[in-house]
C-alpha cells in the first residue's frame, strides 16, 4: 500500500505537471482538490485516465470520483480493491 501511494504521488506530479511540488509536499490525507493540492476539473479528468490506463479501472459513474479522489489515501485504497492490472 505504501509503495502504491508513492507511485501515485509520482504519477500525479508528472502527469499533472506540478512543477513546484515534491513527493514530501503531498501527504496521504491531504485533499487533492480545493485547499489541498489545488487540482482543477481538467486534472480530475486526467486522474480518471490514470485509473484506466495504469490500473485497468474504468469509472462508470464520474460522480464516484468525488469520493475516490479525496486524497492519496482514498485513491490508493480504491485502486488496491479494484485494479485489474
Amino acid at each position: 500500500m505504501e509503495a502504491l501511494k508513492e507511485e501515485l504521488k509520482n504519477k500525479i506530479i508528472t502527469t499533472l505537471n506540478l512543477e513546484d511540488i515534491t513527493l514530501e509536499d503531498i501527504h496521504d490525507n491531504d485533499p487533492l482538490f480545493g485547499d489541498g493540492l489545488g487540482l482543477d476539473s481538467i486534472d480530475a479528468l486526467e486522474l480518471i485516465v490514470i485509473l484506466d490506463k495504469d490500473y485497468g479501472i474504468k469509472l462508470v459513474d464520474p460522480k464516484e470520483g468525488k469520493t475516490i479522489f479525496q486524497s492519496i489515501e482514498t485513491m490508493a485504497a480504491y485502486i488496491q480493491a479494484n485494479r485489474t492490472k
Binding site: L16, N17, I42, D43, L45, E46, V49, D52, K53
Partner: peptide
C-alpha cells in the same frame, strides 16, 4: 487509446 484531456483543451 488514452486521449489526454489536459492536451485536448
Amino acid at each position: 487509446y488514452f486521449p489526454s484531456p489536459a492536451v485536448f483543451v
